[in-house]
Design a protein around this nucleic acid. Structure first.
Lengths: 248, 248
DNA sequence: TATTTAATTGCACAAAAACGCATAAACACG
DNA sequence: CGTGTTTATGCGTTTTTGTGCAATTAAATA
């Protein structure tokens, strides 16, 4: 087996299970531990995964770790401020959940006038602080992990909505693989959200770039705006400068 | 399980419950106490949590935990503890919003197993901290005043539910006028909630007794339980000792 | 104060990683 | 073709890391 094939195999395992054990790979690929370690090291150097004692974890897994730290917060405020320029008075906006979206809501100008649909209770509570925003909370099963409503009932209701703009966070975005996610239900949810909105803006910190997870939400073409904390001209965004995708 | 995964697990627990017990983690993760202690120590070194005898607390525990602002919190905790006796495993419970209900949710035993429908986002978020509770958030227009969902859509959905018990706070209760309220929409909402539940429990602090407001929600006969912070034998409750109304 | 419960410390052991070295296949090029 | 070079891999040996055990100390509780 060629090195490249091994690398691909490892990355598939990572995307599938979020983790690999060195010992498992030794067995599966039938090579020495050293080879696996070298492989993992090389993938780390390429920034494709995260190495720990005993194996490796997916990058996204790792980054979900320090979400609550202050450093990420500054980036998120930066993202939020950029995203605000997308909101015009009178708009109907649909939002997901997550810390980035929440930060966005907190940064909104006080006098903004709009209708917001959201699947996140926390976002709803935050939006309620604005006098001229009408808030509609989309109900359904409540996910303990993601802190948003999900399930068939939510999807049905989304299908009855037509929003001008959908704002969502993401755990992974990739130039060719597009938007991907790990959980089936969240995946379905995001698809439905995108489907019922004229345009979609993805808010994500740069750590989430160039990652692809196991379930596909939509191709990059379905997204209208990509908002990161990086400067518009940053090299990391080069691969995302495609037709129809506005970067800010 | 890799060390990093354990750390991640612990942080999740901390973010969810604001605290963890060493002994719980030993069980959940199936490792020795020593390992858990070392894990906790390492997370402390990284500044991610705060260690105490018996377990650890979230770092934000001190700063963000400002419950002193909740009016009459002690009374509400007392009410909450009494109300918990009404909940049996397997029940389908419907709750409203308000600080009393929120306090009730916070006091629930950790291992409780039930299905909760709620119109309050904050209650939903709080309920999500219990592993064995299924949470369904009823969606609709979001009221900035009451912090609950309301409107036709909510009423429609309530009509499709059959709950064992409805828990609600109230702004007024009166021996002859029954439950009353000031706002039309909230009034409609409460009617619908009572209608779809086999039994209704009203949680209220004693100062709401003997008050009657503009709009009638239901007669006192429609209520099964009245829960206050007062002793069962207190004179203030004398007028409420009517047939079918259990006072506790 | 006594008693239980948790935390600390030092130690041992196994698993994994790192490092240097040897080997061999693949490649480059006159 | 032959020879030097690069690249990929595996084998020992040494370090580091992760974990559990036992004895002791400290803390909470009655």
């Amino acid at each position: 087996m060629l090195k490249k094939e091994r690398h691909d195999f490892i990355m598939r395992q990572i995307n599938l299970h979020n983790r690999v054990l060195t010992s498992d790979l030794v067995q599966l690929l039938n090579v020495s531990e050293d080879t696996i370690r070298r492989d993992l090291q090389e993938l780390v150097d390429e920034g494709k995964l995260f190495k720990v004692h005993g194996g490796a974890l997916s990058k996204s897994y790792h980054s979900s770790f320090d979400d609550s730290t202050v450093y990420a917060r500054d980036s998120k405020i930066g993202i939020a401020k950029k995203a605000i320029s997308l909101i015009k008075d009178g708009m109907v906006v649909l939002t997901g959940g997550g810390t980035t979206i929440l930060e966005f809501v907190k940064q909104l100008p006080q006098n903004i006038e709009a209708t917001f649909f959201t699947i996140s209770p926390l976002v709803a509570v935050e939006l309620a602080k604005y006098d001229n925003i009408e808030v509609v909370l989309i109900g359904g099963l409540f996910s303990k992990n993601s802190q948003v409503t999900y399930g068939g009932h939510v999807i049905t209701q989304l299908s009855e909505i037509k929003a001008d703009l959908c704002l969502m966070g993401t755990s992974a975005i990739h130039p060719t693989d597009g938007l991907t996610d790990t959980y089936w239900e969240i995946n379905q949810l995001k698809k439905a959200m995108i489907a019922c909105s004229k345009k979609t803006a993805v808010l994500c910190i740069s750590e989430k770039l160039d990652i692809s997870l196991r379930l596909k939400v939509c191709p990059i073409e379905s997204i209208s705006y990509l908002v990161t904390e990086l400067d518009e001209q940053n090299d990391a965004l080069a691969n995302y400068r495609v037709k129809h995708l506005n970067i800010l």
